Simulated assay, not measured.
Amino acid sequence: MGDEAKQGASPRELLLEASRRNNTSLLSEVLHSQSSTQISKLLNESTDGVGNYCLHIAASYGSYDVLDQLLDQEGLEVDPIDRLEGDTPLHKAVRFTNSLTRQEWEAGSSMVDLLLDAGADPRLRNKAKLKPMELVDPRNTELRSLLQKAEFTMTAGDDVVNRDAEEEDEGPTGSASDSDSD
């Protein structure tokens, strides 16, 4: 994007363009021109004409470096839902991976892994009621396995958290009165 084009472009337009083109220097310029509260607002509220947020765009275009930089930003929502398909960025990353040749699948899997590491939820379903794992090319067993493990880990983690909360609500088990009589 030339300097004359940058002059008239809004921070939102520059953010989305950086996400589309995997342009980390443009992304850095945009982020450095904003205060920390403006950054999270810009990242979490900026969409293109069809309701894709910057993470959706970066994942759809395979913009790994921009995605990595975006995920480092404090206050970023990692599971925004796009307006058109109800996809999360994780859905988009899987769709992008499916568009690659088998030799390129590893690059797509790296993007999926990056999103999972940042806390993206592989259990979320889009408007077609599909989870990201259900969009994976059936031949891509590595990506399917990566998403299955992430889903299992999140589900198991929720079970532990829920069980701990239930135990707190119920109070200590056993005979609490025994300790009172000492």
Results as ranks from 00 to 15, higher is better:
M1G: 09
G2R: 09
A5V: 10
A5E: 14
K6T: 07
K6R: 15
S10N: 04
S10H: 07
S10C: 06
R12H: 10
L14T: 04
L15P: 01
E17N: 15
E17R: 15
A18C: 01
A18W: 13
S19E: 13
R21F: 12
R21E: 13
N22E: 12
N22P: 14
T24K: 14
S25Q: 14
L27P: 09
L27Y: 14
E29C: 07
H32E: 13
Q34W: 01
T37A: 10
I39E: 13
K41P: 00
L43D: 07
E45D: 11
D48Q: 01
D48V: 11
G49I: 08
V50C: 03
G51W: 10
Y53I: 03
H56L: 04
A58H: 05
A58R: 08
G62N: 03
L67H: 06
Q69A: 15
L70D: 06
L70M: 07
E77F: 00
E77S: 00
D82V: 07
L84C: 03
L84Q: 13
E85I: 00
D87K: 11
T88S: 09
T88N: 05
P89Y: 04
A93K: 03
S99N: 07
L100I: 03
R102V: 14
E104C: 01
G108N: 02
D113W: 00
L115P: 11
D117F: 08
A118C: 05
A118R: 14
A118Y: 04
G119A: 10
N126I: 04
K127D: 15
A128Q: 13
A128C: 06
A128T: 06
K129R: 15
L130N: 14
K131E: 15
R139L: 14
T141M: 08
K149P: 00
A150R: 03
E151H: 11
T153D: 12
T153C: 02
T153Q: 11
T153F: 04
M154D: 04
T155E: 09
G157E: 10
G157F: 03
G157Q: 11
V160E: 12
V160C: 03
D164K: 06
D164T: 01
A165I: 05
E166A: 11
E167P: 00
E168W: 12
E168R: 14
E170W: 11
T173W: 00
A176H: 11
S179Q: 12
S179P: 02
S181M: 09
D182E: 14
